[in-house]
Design a protein around this nucleic acid. Structure first.
Lengths: 212, 212
DNA sequence: TAGATTGTTAATCGATTAACAATC
DNA sequence: TAGATTGTTAATCGATTAACAATC
């Protein structure tokens, strides 16, 4: 029943959550109206890019006026499915995993870390940041009952691939991979990779070799 | 004394640390020779892209043979300044900050988190993962003695901008920003932004709207 | 030599952005 | 109307990749 959004560029799609979050802030502060140049200043994206991004969804603004905050927000709420709760699971309750459980991502969002998994029996049975920790062996049965599609993967890198295989076998369709390992997954599984050490290394490289 | 590397595309520069890490693994496993297609399989980057990336640095391989692991590795070691230690500081010892301190990034690398800072007196004076925690008020004087150029920023988002201003005032040139806030910094300061919640949101958006 | 694999050419693709006519 | 700001055109830019001549 979707309008064909296939043509929306990936770069645009990646910015949508950012726009959304800022618009929430605007609404909370009671603003009713915003221009692409104000938005640009706030989210650090060129104003032409913002107008172009919005235009993929039709004519959302009014010439000479700008955009109506409430309208834009409710439009993006639908577009981003902010009404449906997306259930997320975390696998690997180490340093980083624990931080994410406490952090709890979800703050006022449509996502919620429902459960976490680990193989360490001293962690299994505990609750961190309201999230219960189960043994990884129970993964498949637990998510089957729970309709989970996305996993945040924070395990040691040498077990990342076998565990990813297990997750995929259990029906997971999206993995947010914080492991250094490059995962091999079937075509219908989407992996977004955040490689913290590469990020730090490349920042340093840029600093030394691309003076501003 | 640098060769002019200004022309190396940013996309290439971002992949260098990745190549480097994988080559270290190859060397450790005793391999002497590797082809662009083997590399491609491992790091999930098209083999033509890899050859193109390498070619920015000259002819690093041999036709019909591939690349010599040791040679490539020592070349990239120089290029990535893996011999110089880059001192890094972490600001904001909350959940995420603590995870990074324990995690310690640096594992066998050229980076080391030297110090951490927070404003919470119950944290100041502690040591986490060998890293001492100081009060943020001491930031400027402590880094002045220490030659630190890069900060990992893991503070609450509502204080991110004022604290960034303070860091910049102390002479910091690179910030790895884990805050949702979009930072305004002078032109000569480089900010890489990792927005965890946007990453999760956009993964979910892709899953729902870009079926594979 | 025969086989393998590089380095590069050339085409394609996706994303960005200046500029401005349209129009509220 | 005068002023402001959109939505879009057109140009530019940066990155990717198929294909293949060169050559080890």
């Amino acid at each position: 029943m979707d309008i064909d959004q296939t043509k929306i560029p990936q770069a645009t799609a990646k910015r949508l959550p950012l726009y959304y979050r800022f618009l929430e802030g605007l609404q909370a502060s009671g603003k009713h109206r915003v221009s692409s140049s104000e938005l640009s200043e706030a989210v650090k994206v060129d104003s032409a890019t913002i107008r172009r991004d919005f235009s993929y969804f039709g004519a959302l603004g009014k010439k000479g006026y700008g955009y109506n905050v409430n309208y834009l927000l409710s439009f993006f709420r639908k577009t981003l499915d902010q009404d449906e709760l997306t259930k997320v699971t975390l696998v690997g309750v180490g340093n980083l995993g624990t931080a994410f459980l406490n952090y709890n991502f979800s703050k006022s969002n449509n996502t919620r870390i429902e459960m976490a998994f680990d193989v360490d029996d001293s962690k299994v049975g505990n609750v961190i940041g309201d999230v219960p920790i189960y043994h990884l062996d129970e993964f498949k049965e637990r998510i089957a009952n729970n309709n989970v599609e996305v996993v945040i993967l924070t395990v040691p890198s040498h077990v990342a691939q076998p565990i990813a295989d297990q997750l995929v076998g259990a029906g997971i369709k999206g993995i947010l991979n914080f492991t250094p390992a490059r995962l091999s997954v079937p075509d219908d599984v989407r992996v977004h990779h955040i490689d913290l050490s590469v990020e730090l290394q490349s920042l340093i490289y840029f600093l030394k070799h691309y003076p501003l």
